[in-house]
Design a protein around this nucleic acid. Structure first.
Lengths: 230, 230
DNA sequence: CAATCAATTTTGGTATACCAAAAAAAATAA
DNA sequence: TTATTTTTTTTGGTATACCAAAATTGATTG
């Protein structure tokens, strides 16, 4: 909050644009145009694009325009697989290392979410959901883990955003969050880890469904081609 | 590999300098000086520094000179904790998804390492060791996992390099690698995962010892200066 | 002599200019 | 009309110039 370096601000704005769909998946992100539009020069815009690339929201190609990422179902599934592992580890470590105050803070986030769920628009709802998971990762007291976990969450923003719009899941999500908090309070690593796995398993299910639905809609080309390795 | 974009080349060179100790931990990495020294402009140098920052080899501070990272023992330990989780997941997924050819390739790396161990200098030895672990991550067929895993390996270059296996560990390392390969061939996820945990556990032990040893040495604050050259 | 503050230098952040490669468009040949 | 080649435009990569914030140095004052 305190610091907001220019590239970060630009990245934040681009991120919102991508998330909101103003920049569609597959669309080129031209540094010159975007820079002009935002009234900055190419240099910070360039860096902002790299930030988004690191987050996986845009894809860099050598000597070509970066494009808004349009991950395939497999790519999203793979990312969630890793996310699950990271969150399970977070949960276990949080049980071990979190202070009581931190766990209380996590509960507070959960209760705020439960209380305001219906009042929030879905992007806010979404952010508080992310805050819940981020707080657990932080409570692991493993900075590297928290950072990597955060990167994965950021990367999945769009996919989760698209799949999280309905109020249908409301009760289940809140119940699972509640179970996770209870597990933390009981310092029960297994319970926390297991419930996190279940929770994210449902997320994966919804994202798959979302993909199905979108597949039936117009398919605006842009299919994946030969991957080059890392 | 095929392409080597300029920032990548610069990053590679800086990486070597850091790894080899030509740039000591804590030393500032001034983009102007380094750029001049390497005969390039600041722009690609800047990007190279960001790449290294992403890898965790240098630390970026707002409006200050980036410095060569000098991670604390806890930071290294934390990173290894995550690395273990990533590698265990890699192993399990590799058991599930790797082709027989891929596993054969992993065995080939292992055997090459076993055969040439005594001939290689320790940086080469080190790279073939990395190749072994990277191959397993790739065999998971989870691109995101392989990328993140690669990032962690890169980040740990220096720590692992410093704890460079003397020939004492030779037999144990090779035996553990052999066990891992055997587990892959037997498609035994539990065995692979377990042995990876053991293997990296030893790595952690060595790194901790290395830290102990260095702590006893002089605590050199910031050395290294800019060469005034040509 | 020490501490503090001002002037200078250093250094990263940003803007802009130039270049080469790639895309797109236009022209030409079949 | 279609395919191919040539020209123009677009765009990322790189170099350089300028600026403001730090760090450093040195002077000044207690």
């Amino acid at each position: 909050m305190a610091d907001t370096t220019l590239p970060d601000q630009i990245a934040a704005r681009l991120r919102r644009d991508i998330l909101r769909g103003r920049l569609a998946p597959g669309a080129p992100v031209k540094e010159r145009d975007n820079a002009a539009e935002m009234g900055v020069s190419r240099t910070p815009m360039r860096e902002a694009i790299r930030i988004l690339a690191k987050e996986g929201l845009v894809e860099l190609r050598p000597a070509r325009s970066p494009v808004v990422a349009n991950p395939t179902l497999k790519e999203v599934t793979d990312a969630i697989t890793v996310l699950v592992a990271l969150e399970e580890l977070s949960g276990r470590l949080a049980v071990e290392h979190a202070t009581d105050e931190e766990i209380a803070g996590i509960r507070r986030i959960h209760e705020k979410m439960a209380a305001e769920f219906d009042l929030l628009d879905h992007i806010d709802r979404f952010e508080i959901d992310m805050a819940f998971h981020i707080a657990i990762a932080k409570a692991s007291h493993n900075v590297a883990l928290a950072r990597t976990h955060g990167a994965y969450l950021a990367r999945m923003w769009r996919a989760r955003f698209l799949s999280a719009r309905t109020r249908r899941n409301r009760d289940r999500v809140l119940r699972q969050h509640g179970t996770i908090v209870a597990g933390l309070e009981a310092r029960d690593a297994e319970a926390v880890s297991r419930e996190i796995g279940v929770h994210l398993g449902h997320l994966l299910t919804h994202i798959i469904e979302e993909f199905r639905d979108r597949a039936e809609d117009a398919r605006p080309a842009v299919e994946v081609e030969s991957d080059s390795g890392s």
